[in-house]
Amino acid sequence: MSDQPLFSPRNPWFGISVGVTAAIAVLSAVAGLIWLPLAQPNLKLASVWDAICSAAGVPRAAVQEAAVKPDFKTSNVVMTSEMLTKVDQVSIGRGATLAQRCAICHGPQGVSDAHSPNLAGQFAAVTYKELNDFKTGARVSVVMSPFAAAMSDQDMKDVAAYYAYLPRVPSNNLDTGRAAPAVVVTGAPLRNIPPCGSCHGDIDNKAGSPWLGGQSAVYIKAQLEAFASGTRRNDISQQMRNIARQMTAEEIDQVAHYYEAQP
């Protein structure tokens, strides 16, 4: 074996391998960070330094233009997965008292036949978000908006915690044998409709999506139609509007009755 030390400029293996590697690295860096960006006229680079920064991915301040504001209010709630998932007994107790004024429509146990949503067992984050949206005007209802307007942030959290604590009660139309419509099980990928349950809890729950089982079919249908027509717009980033717009009237009808029959 050669007795030459490996890490020595006189060892040809060392010199050649380090030299070739460095040459390739430098050439590719020059090409990728300087030459190629400068060769693209639409990048409008002022200098070599500009080219390097751009190609290295250094963020540039966006051009300051006034953002186009929608002419309606959007939800300002920031949803996260673990929001309001920690049970707080004090909050539930306060919520129970506050919820007395809701009982006339939503039922003393959070369930009613009034075609208003059943709140018993609803995810707390969902109830909280809707109350917030009613309060800010992102969602409008002649009945709900005045109630929400008078509530503090803590009130909304308490009521939400209370309803989440109540057990879910199936509707009178419970029919667990009912076959699920295709759009519920598989969605319709070519129309960009995922399976409903991938957000609404039967497969997985994504923050802000309500549990639908046992809700009044009349209510579900009305909401889907409101999303589709754009009269309801408090869904963050149009999550539900984009889906509802793609659904046929028949599908809306099917899912409304399917979910009403679920526990």
């Binding site: 690295a25 590719s28 860096a29 990728g32 960070l33 190609a55 290295a56 250094v58």
Partner: peptide, 12 residues
């Protein structure tokens, strides 16, 4: 990741 680094990785 910046386009320049994507290019370098592409070369290697």
């Amino acid at each position: 990741v910046g386009a320049g680094f994507k290019f370098m990785h592409s070369v290697f």
